[in-house]
Amino acid sequence: MWYWLFKYIFMGPLLTLLGRPKVEGLEYIPRSGPMILASNHLAVADSFYKPLVVSRRITFLAKSEYFTGTGIKGWFQRWFYTAAGQVPIDRSDADSAQAALTTAARVLGEGKLLGMYPEGTRSPDGRLYKGKTGLARLALETGVPVIPVAMIGTDSVNPPGSKMWRFGRVTVKFGKPMDFSRFEGLAGNRFIERAVIDEVMYELMRLSGQEYVDLYAADVKDGNAELAAKPSARMPEVAAG
């Protein structure tokens, strides 16, 4: 209930006023059934504007720490993230990466839309960074199609590092569903997983118009001067198969 109240009453109208969202390709979102929404990541606002323009509820994964706080602050944080459609990653598995995939597979098994950011973190400078293969493994293990989603302008409405939101124009572009059934049975093959995620990133680059950087965004954020200074690499043409 709170998810829809936030969307249509508490936050939705304000977000619409600030970002005047424009949406393209909404017809690619199925009315029912599981689907992975793979998006570029420019700002915190990405996780608000995507659900705003999609009629179905979108579920995102969140660190379990967001749901285990104590006191009033912990209660509010737990309530807010739950209301915003986020679920905690089950970290009972010693491997946190596998725990995330297990939780994601459970969400998809329930027939839901799962929102993921293959870059793993927000872009430090507005460019598109190398995708991590977790999303590819999930798609291969579950057989669920991937819809690329380009977020444009969210970093102007919600500048990274700033607590202030501004007026701007947000565009959300949905691409055609990507079917990787041709790789059935090859989950766990790192070369196949890299090919799959590169194909997804190529579509995100095409939809968003961002410059591609063949580095992980987290490495650049960690302050590695050599990596940050390395010139960007053009994403090669990817065969659609």
Rank of each mutant, 00 (worst) to 15 (best):
Y117A: 09
A38F: 13
K176L: 11
M235C: 13
D214F: 12
E226K: 15
T16N: 03
T142F: 07
L18M: 09
L108P: 00
R57S: 10
F6G: 02
G109H: 05
S92K: 11
Y81K: 00
V144A: 13
A218K: 08
F174W: 12
I192P: 00
V144P: 15
G143N: 05
L128N: 07
E237Q: 09
F167Q: 12
G126S: 11
F183G: 01
A150C: 08
P159H: 12
V213E: 08
W75S: 07
D93T: 05
G115W: 02
Y202A: 15
A45M: 10
R194K: 14
Q86L: 10
L42N: 10
A38G: 14
L215R: 06
R106D: 12
Y216M: 02
F6I: 12
P21T: 09
M116P: 05
Y202D: 10
F60P: 00
A83C: 04
V23G: 02
L114Y: 05
R56E: 10
L135N: 00
T102M: 04
V170L: 08
W4H: 14
G241V: 15
D93Y: 03
A139N: 09
P51N: 14
E24P: 03
G85E: 02
A217M: 00
I197C: 03
E203T: 05
Y212E: 08
G223S: 07
V87R: 07
A99G: 15
S32F: 10
Y49N: 05
K22W: 12
E65Y: 08
V146N: 00
L138V: 07
P231K: 06
V146K: 00
P160R: 09
M35E: 06
I9F: 13
I147V: 15
Y212W: 13
F180R: 04
Y212T: 07
E203H: 14
K112W: 04
S92C: 00
L135F: 01
G131T: 01
E27G: 11
P13G: 13
A218I: 15
I58V: 14
I192L: 06
I58H: 01
M1T: 14
F191E: 09
F76E: 06
A239H: 13
A43G: 10
A218H: 03
G85T: 02
Y81A: 03
D179E: 12
E203V: 06
A38N: 06
F60D: 00
A195L: 15
D179V: 06
W2Q: 12
T142M: 14
A105G: 10
R190S: 07
S32K: 15
F80C: 08
D90T: 00
L37M: 10
P34V: 05
